[in-house]
Write a protein that binds this DNA or RNA. Sequence first.
DNA 1: ATGGTTGCCAAGCAA
Length: 268
Amino acid sequence: MPFTIATWNINSIRLRLPIVERVLRERQPDVLCLQETKCIDELFPFEPLAAAGYPHVLINGQKGYHGVATISRRPIALLETRQFCGIADSRHLSARLSAGGLDILLHNFYVPAGGDEPDPEINPKFRHKLGFVDEMRAIPATSGDSAASILVGDLNIAPLEHDVWSHKQLLKVVSHTPVETESFEAMRLGGNWVDLMRQLVPADEKLYTWWSYRARDWAASDRGRRLDHIWSSANLSGRLTGIDVLREARGWERPSDHVPVIARFDLD
DNA sequence: ATGGTTGCCAAGCAA
């Protein structure tokens, strides 16, 4: 049995509990990292997730906005919930679990979207996003003989040309501006993180995890972006056996605008 | 160039 980990910006856990249960039932990931749960901790749906086989649930929620949760079939321990840029948003949760004899440090991130105007001087939300990515430099991929790291989440940046439907048309659109993509890649490489999706999908192939709600026909226009990511330390990247982007989930009833991404590893 | 949709929670704000 491989070890599998999934990430999904769910855009309200309570509204979309039925499709979360569907993914858990059909794909049975060992761990699912959720972002934008939009749910205070007291209202989090622990019981249905436990009934689905996921009794280990770690949450960092807030009212109405943001919020991350990491749910697991196997025991998992909360490490910390970090703040970034001195702003008390619920955008991070780290945890420790064991798989294949490895002690795995797992980060679940929801990076700020950054607003519409890609100018940090006039747009505080964009300034926050750039500062947030800068602060992520303090979280490198730690590893050792029996230790490894995984970082997943909605990172709200599509770094490569073919991570967006039109590189040229998105160069001035927040999520794909050079100031974002360059600092994003520098942060990833400086932290020794491996981009696992692109390890298996060639850089010249289009790859998206998000399609706007505003499209008349998201599938026909297919104007997507790869905003969701799975990274690992180098000692785990060699154990990666597969990546699934569940594009079909964008067409389900009451969908999130993001779809689940699942990584499979040759670990038990 | 503009507006297009969704969710929170009950008016805009954020995405």
